[in-house]
Design a protein around this nucleic acid. Structure first.
Lengths: 131, 131
DNA sequence: CGGGATCCTTATCGATACTG
DNA sequence: CAGTATCGATAAGGATCCCG
């Protein structure tokens, strides 16, 4: 009955426990900024404010907490060099570099298919308009 | 200076416009539930309450708005059969099926690497404990 | 420079009630 | 069954100030 015959079945039809497991894991990384930060760090280590510039419109509070989460999950390392002014460098760990691959896959897909998404949005709006 | 030499460079070092583009696109799909719903629908069409059971701990309100977003972005189709009781079936569109691939990649990575994440969390907690 | 602490403003979510 | 509408709780986010 399954529509997919992928070799590794990670689906969770009827397996709600596994589905919840995936859910919790995805929830940890699928916030608005984590993947973006991982992507930027994939180009090399960054210091806090450099990271903030590269990521875009992110507040320092949110970036700080995002980095804490990423560090907690083992994606990012935080290296403090005690000089004046203090210097803190963020870099991807081995796990973070591994994670970069699926993230890039996703990012590339999204970039490549954004026209299709835009078209769908226009059609959706048109459909809604004539109700 | 880049640490990656991937063929298709979708990174955004110094290209903040592109980065923001990716940011907006990722933000549209990287909420807590969208990928999960796409995954479940990847196993075949579902009606509202069946979907709700399969996804897990999601309220009807959030599922409804998630489905609206997915429909708006062209990932999911909504087919109403006017019978009593009313019957509404959700299914992946072509775009949604395409999207399934990077989503599965991500889900499989997360499943496979959750032990590493767990270990990192324990180590992080241990480090924090001796400050 | 790299944040933590605080306050305040918004989204977000869950529960309940109600409609076709 | 498949939702929408409304309300209250709660979490997320921005702005500002401050410290090492």
């Amino acid at each position: 009955m399954a529509t997919l015959d992928n070799p590794v079945d990670t689906a969770c039809a009827g397996d709600s426990a596994r589905c919840e497991h995936i859910s919790r894991l995805l929830a940890r990384i699928s916030d608005k900024w984590s993947m973006l930060v991982v992507r930027v760090l994939g180009q090399g280590p960054r210091r806090f404010n450099a990271l903030r510039r590269d990521v875009g419109e992110i507040s320092q509070k949110v970036l700080a907490s995002t980095l804490r989460d990423l560090e907690e999950n083992g994606f990012v390392s935080r290296t403090v060099t005690p000089v004046t002014p203090p210097q803190v460098e963020y870099a991807l760990t081995d796990l973070g570099r591994d994670f970069l691959q699926p993230v890039q896959t996703l990012a590339e897909w999204v970039l490549a298919n954004s026209p299709r998404m835009d078209t769908a949005r226009i059609e959706y709006a048109a459909r809604r308009a004539l109700d």
